[in-house]
Computed example of a mutant assay.
Amino acid sequence: MKALIAATAMAVLASSGFAQESPVALAEAAVAQFHDAHSRLEAAQSASDRVKALTGVVQAYEEGLEAMRSGLRQVSLREAELSREFADESGQYAQLLGILVGMKPDASPEALVHPSGPLGQARAGMLVASVAPTVQAQVEDMRVRLEEVQILRELQNEALETLSQGLQEVQQARTELSQAMSDRTDLPQRFTTTPERIKTLIDSSETLEAFASGLAVMDVVDGISPLPDLGSAQGSWPMPVPGRMLRNFNEADAAGVKRPGWLWAARPLSLVTTPWPATLRYKGPFLDYGNVIILEPANDVLLILAGLDEVYGDIGAVLPAGTAVGLMGGAAPDLDDFVENATQGTGVSLSETLYIEVREGGQPVNPEHWFAGAPL
């Protein structure tokens, strides 16, 4: 059925002149991404590096959810557009049919012998002949659009079945990833510390700056697992989580407070990853920042991520680039909420906030120096 829908959809697209990024193509792509994520989840069960495999699975599902949002939204808009077109044109077609019925040829002798009969019949015949090709073209156009509506609805039904399964499986993947991170013991340790030392530092730090500065001077055993050189890495880091900028570096908020970092909007339960190999210097709550992750990609360079709901990893471990370090907060949407928000373009899709700060030599710097394609 899926192959038949896809083949018919492509034929309709070709005949109606729609580009590849049509609602039909977007919906098909979203369904395909979910099927791919499902296959990757099954493969992750036997992967030698389950953390890496499950990280990829969660990211694949997140990409599939984003594609599904876009696909359902465009399908809904296109179906509404077609409905409006049919409503607007139905009255016009009714009037046209009424006129043509009233102008039907009359071959009776009375019509032909009437003084104006033959002339009237000739004019009517000429008018009908000139209108008929246009009416036929419009009928064919309506047939194509009706087929498109049918395809859109079939794709919606298939997408909803896939989405229902996907929403359950992405949560399963997140849970398995959290467990796999807790069980992980294969990462090299660059240093060790005690909970007492961390607690003492937290208790004596009144600001995030003071806490980060204290961490920076804690003992580190160098040489156990050297980190890649950061010399050529500036401007190349990927963002820790997809989203958009809320407040830029040192930009004042509504209360006039400035912070030396970015405030970044993200979707609920999004996976947060480290953009560069780094030592995990701290994970856990701090003041009113929520859960905080502090990474050290090089000596005298710290990356601070604050506002996570769940954090992963062992303090002192050296994390490869792309390693999951936590999840954003928020609640998982149910099927009805997801569909309503997607089709109507409403909802709190980027409701979670991540604070991103980079410090060099103990001083904050604009994160745009490090992250690729710094957003405006």
Rank of each mutant, 00 (worst) to 15 (best):
Q74E: 05
G322C: 02
V135H: 02
L41N: 10
S83R: 15
M1R: 09
P268S: 09
Y312G: 01
L163D: 05
S236N: 09
A212F: 08
L112F: 13
I5L: 05
S48T: 15
P133N: 08
A67S: 01
A3C: 12
L376P: 13
S130R: 11
Q20N: 10
S351D: 05
H369P: 03
Q74N: 06
S182Q: 12
F34Y: 01
A37Q: 10
V221P: 00
Q168N: 05
V221K: 06
V139W: 06
W276D: 06
A87K: 14
A94F: 06
P23D: 03
D222P: 15
P188H: 00
G284F: 08
V311T: 03
P275R: 00
L163Q: 06
Q156H: 11
A43C: 03
A19P: 14
Q20I: 10
D309V: 01
L263I: 12
D337L: 13
R123A: 01
E161R: 12
L127A: 12
V241Y: 04
E148A: 13
F191H: 01
N248T: 00
V365F: 04
S236T: 09
K258W: 11
E206N: 07
F86D: 15
S349H: 08
L263Y: 13
A132P: 09
S39P: 11
L335V: 10
V131K: 04
I315D: 06
D219W: 12
A7N: 08
A37N: 12
L376N: 12
V170N: 00
G56T: 04
L13W: 11
S39I: 10
S39L: 08
M1W: 12
G361T: 06
F86I: 15
E196K: 14
L230K: 02
R267W: 08
Q92C: 14
S16E: 14
G330S: 09
G313T: 13
K2A: 15
N299E: 13
T192Q: 04
I224W: 13
V365N: 03
E62F: 07
G120R: 02
G361E: 06
L269S: 13
E28F: 01
S205H: 05
